[in-house]
């Protein structure tokens, strides 16, 4: 009698005892995958996904860093891909990525538009004179309004605007050549392929 009762129960109890172990294994798995992504795939848990991706790039008109009496606008670059790089001399990561920007400029795949965010003109001018200037044009966003329009929350941030005027990609944090080739270049290739298909 007791035998008959306990044997099916025992199997059920054993299966039930496994439930916490399985749940714990799943939890460990999720943690492991997330840690791997942080370490090797550049996952940033603080990154905010921009709602601007795939939407028209906001137009700005700001005084040029080189000459504040001259107004510069990203409209001047419409019709072809360009980069908008948000930086400031107060930002250490910007200095870290500066060499990469110079390399991208040297490859001359597209123009770089600098947005000098909440910076001091004199210092910014000297910074570019010393380290080299990768930008076709630099706009001074002294009060940070344009940065808000672009959903910027921490420099450096780099936007790729396509030939159609839409924001194709956004990178938060310092660029590296690896990131450039992995996340940006494919968009450029897709863009030229599309243009070639339209106008053979």
């Amino acid at each position: 009698m007791a035998e008959e009762l306990t044997s099916p129960n025992a199997a059920g109890a054993r299966a039930r005892a496994l439930v916490p172990a399985v749940l714990f294994a799943v939890l460990l798995g999720v943690c492991g995958v997330t840690l791997y992504k942080i370490q090797h795939r550049g996952l940033d848990l603080h990154e905010i996904k921009s709602p601007l991706i795939g939407r028209p790039a906001p137009v700005f008109r700001l005084p040029s860093l080189a000459d504040p009496t001259v107004m510069v606008s990203n409209e001047a670059f419409a019709g072809r891909p360009y980069l908008v790089n948000v930086w400031g001399t107060w930002c250490g990561e910007c200095r870290a990525e500066h060499g990469v920007l110079l390399e991208i400029a040297r490859r001359a795949e597209l123009p770089l538009v600098g947005l000098d965010w909440r910076d001091e003109r004199g210092i910014a001018g000297r910074y570019l004179a010393t380290l080299g200037n990768p930008y076709s044009v630099v706009a001074s966003d002294d009060d940070g309004r344009v940065a808000i329009d672009w959903g910027v929350y921490g420099a450096p941030e780099t936007f790729l605007v396509g030939a159609d005027g839409q924001i194709k990609h956004k990178h938060v944090g310092a660029l590296s050549i690896d990131v450039w080739e992995r996340d940006f270049v494919p968009h450029l290739k897709a863009g030229t392929a599309a243009v070639a298909a339209v106008a053979p």
Binding site: I48, K49, S50, P51, L52, I148, D149, G151, Y153
Partner: peptide, 8 residues
């Protein structure tokens, strides 16, 4: 604000 920064 959400148009620029999302629901976050």
């Amino acid at each position: 604000m959400t148009a620029r920064y999302g629901d976050f």
